[in-house]
């Protein structure tokens, strides 16, 4: 019988197995172990949600706590990656990219191309994103489209524990900088996760559910929202095909085009803000490359163009839900030939 684990355990296990396999893999970030310099327990935290807990006990000084100096330590991870290490740096909340963005998009992302192919920067930046924890405007954003915009970065958004482990192992083995985006609403999600190490290739979307009526292309936590909507729609006789992009960069255009060719109808579901996000990107790509397969207009379901509100009432309204997806799917059905 397959072993089950949570998304959080899957990430921890991927880190542990890669540290075991390759001693150039190091982990760094604020309180990734914790308790440094105190009278109490060392490895007291494992990050604010305990994701890296236990690694310090196994790998000691290869698990490095940092001062609150993101520009310096994210940059140090990037620099170390060009000089023989494979750092996995934790940028606690994706929102904090504002503090250290230069080191990511002007430095890490550019080296390989700008230096004429001579540089490799095998760094992983793990970071949590997404709304739903009442964490308000500066701790809840879905900023993966910003990274996706930048050539040279790879961007990963696992939706399941299985994918989290396999994609993180791939990220660590990859020779390009990878922004590994963990949805904080998924950490406790359980699923089948093989115990042995395995890598899932980037740029291969996953068909999570098959159906012939409408395609829903989505990613991250929204995969589960799509699935909930699809189950409800199946009761009304509408069969949805759900595509989980898994990585936004590289992007698996072929699978998206194939599903549109199959169903002729498309809903794109993205938790990010509505302008210049994955939904607009996918919609544009489909219009350009599979327009003739479309039986009607595409619908996008996204968060509104506002910062993430604090109040639980507002945040629940803010996050795209299954009802919104069902409505969009029905609208697409009605407006198509």
């Amino acid at each position: 019988m397959a072993r089950t684990a949570t998304y959080q355990q899957a990430i921890n296990e991927a880190l542990a197995q890669e540290m075991e396999r390759d001693e150039t893999v190091v982990v760094m970030g604020e309180d990734v172990a914790g308790g440094l310099g105190t009278d109490g327990e060392r490895d007291a935290w494992g990050g604010p949600l305990g994701i890296t807990k236990g690694l310090y006990g196994k790998y000691g000084d290869r698990v490095m706590d940092t001062p609150i100096s993101e520009s310096a330590f994210i940059g140090a991870a990037v620099g170390a990656a060009t000089a023989g290490l494979r750092p996995v740096a934790e940028l606690m909340f994706i929102d904090f990219m504002g503090v250290c963005f230069d080191q990511i998009f002007n430095q890490a992302a550019k080296f390989r191309y700008m230096f004429g192919g001579k540089a490799e920067t095998p760094v992983v930046i793990r970071t949590m994103y997404g709304a739903g924890l009442r964490a308000a405007a500066q701790h809840s954003q879905c900023l993966y489209p910003v990274f996706t915009h930048i050539p040279g970065l790879k961007v990963v958004t696992p939706a399941t524990p299985y994918d989290a482990k396999g994609l993180l192992i791939q990220a660590i083995r990859d020779n390009d900088p990878v922004i590994f985006c963990e949805h904080k609403g998924l950490y406790t999600l359980e699923g089948d996760v093989p115990e042995e190490p395995y890598a899932l290739p980037f740029g291969e979307a996953n068909i999570v559910r098959e159906g012939d009526d409408v395609s829903i292309v989505t990613l991250g936590r929204m995969v589960h929202v799509a699935d909930e909507a699809a189950s409800a729609l199946a009761n009304d006789g509408i069969e949805c095909e759900i595509v989980d992009l898994r990585t936004t960069s590289p992007l698996d255009e072929d699978t998206v085009i194939e599903t549109v060719e199959n169903t002729g109808r498309l809903v794109v579901l993205d938790e990010a803000h509505p302008r210049c996000n994955m939904a607009t990107d996918i919609a544009a790509m489909v219009c350009e490359k599979a327009f003739d397969s479309l039986k009607g207009p595409i619908k996008q379901v996204t968060a509104p163009h506002t910062p993430v509100p604090f109040s639980d009432t507002l945040e629940d309204l803010y996050i795209p839900d299954a009802a919104a997806v069902q409505k969009a799917v029905k609208a697409v059905m009605e407006s198509s030939k």
Partner: peptide, 21 residues
């Protein structure tokens, strides 16, 4: 209700905000 504990502010009082960053 849009800010919460980490973003309480009152500019009339010269309080430019708690800060999440």
């Amino acid at each position: 209700g849009k800010g919460g504990s980490m973003h309480i502010a009152d500019l009339d009082k010269g309080m430019m905000g708690a800060n999440g960053i």
